[in-house]
């Protein structure tokens, strides 16, 4: 890691004022839901806490992933780092520049690929790139040649003069990446870059991202797909409810996960009595109760399931559902929060 980190946040907080409740639910256009799913704000709450003291340090050239469920604060974090959201507290710097006080210097150094493609529909595919470059002072001739190369590299060379709405979803997403690359940013932000893409387009995008990383760019992406985070990121931060839960390489994060496969047994009542009686069951690595769910970790789940079913029955409970989660970032996430990622 170099002396000045590419990104540094200290105690970053964001509180959104709560819009009128009915509006917040029904408006399809409002700001991203800041409230984590399944956690209604307390009655009478006037605001929601989207980020609760986030500390991050991302080195130059890192391929960094922010992993968390919807509403974890990922988009808010990216929003603050890209000057589009004002922090309520704490500080954030990109390439050593404060995102609030030196927003212009920050904007000069970043490229942003938004969650939903927002190409300029009034312009042609190539013009989208060339005009974007012109905002950064890149001469028309240089920009036009560069745009053509990028479009060809992204498989859209023959569509350069076409309209943006003739592009497929995957192509539009790649156009957004090409646009973000036009001014050679030091740090590239991608917010949920593969949401809504078919598997093939997703793989093509991964390839492009890896290549951009190989060229030495700092890349920060968010995702709620654990396999994506696992396979792309050098280092990951797991966030939930605006807080950093863990930060490390995917391999070391997985080591932190309780060993073995997670067996989730959903019961029709409290799980605690079943967990108490199951502690002596052979083959268990760890077991705990979370409301009506027994969370048991075992190297060979097949060996513990019959025992767990029997104990549940003896406790007078009916098993509603059995769910197996292989050892992964997701088991770590579930172990930390009691909830799945998706």
């Amino acid at each position: 890691m170099s002396a000045t980190p590419a990104i540094e946040t200290r105690g970053l907080r964001k509180v959104y004022p709560l819009p009128k409740p009915a509006k917040a639910v029904s408006s399809p256009f409002g700001p991203p839901p800041a409230r984590p799913e399944g956690t209604p704000p307390p009655a009478g709450a006037r605001e929601v806490l989207a980020l609760d003291g986030l500390d991050l340090e991302i080195g130059t050239g890192e391929f960094f992933g922010l992993l968390g469920p919807n509403g974890a604060g990922k988009t808010t974090t990216i929003g603050i780092l890209t000057t589009r959201v004002l922090p309520s507290g704490g500080s954030a710097k990109v390439s050593g520049h404060d995102v609030v006080k030196e927003s212009v210097a920050v904007k000069q150094r970043i490229g942003v690929v938004p969650q939903r493609a927002n190409p300029d529909m009034s312009l042609s595919v190539r013009e989208n790139l060339v005009f974007h470059a012109s905002y950064f002072g890149i001469p028309r001739g240089v920009a036009t040649a560069h745009a053509q190369m990028l479009l060809e590299r992204f498989g859209m060379g023959e569509k350069a003069n076409g309209k943006v709405n003739e592009l497929s979803g995957g192509q539009q997403q790649r156009l957004m990446i090409a646009r973000a690359l036009m001014h050679e940013p030091e740090v590239l932000f991608l917010d949920e870059p593969t949401v809504g893409l078919d598997p093939q387009a997703r793989l093509a995008l991964w390839e492009i991202l890896r290549e951009m990383h190989a060229q030495g760019r700092t890349i920060v992406f968010t995702t709620h797909y654990m396999d994506e985070a696992d396979r792309l990121g050098d280092r990951l931060a797991i966030v939930d409810k605006g807080k950093l839960l863990a930060i490390d390489t995917p391999a070391r994060l997985k080591e932190q996960a309780p060993g073995g496969t997670l067996v989730q047994l959903t019961l029709d009542g409290p799980a605690a009595p079943v967990v108490e009686s199951a502690r002596t069951l052979p083959g268990l690595v760890k077991i705990e109760a979370r409301d009506g769910v027994v969370m048991a970790y075992a190297e060979r789940p097949g060996e513990v399931i019959p025992g767990l079913l029997k104990l549940s029955e003896q406790s007078g409970r009916t098993v509603r559902d059995i769910h197996l989660v292989p050892p992964s970032l997701e088991t770590l996430f579930v172990a930390m929060t009691g909830r799945g990622l998706q």
């Binding site: 590299r153 992204f154 790649r174």
Partner: peptide, 10 residues
């Protein structure tokens, strides 16, 4: 999938 030529730099 795009042809795997190097990503152009400006």
């Amino acid at each position: 999938a795009p042809a795997s030529t190097a990503l152009p730099r400006l």
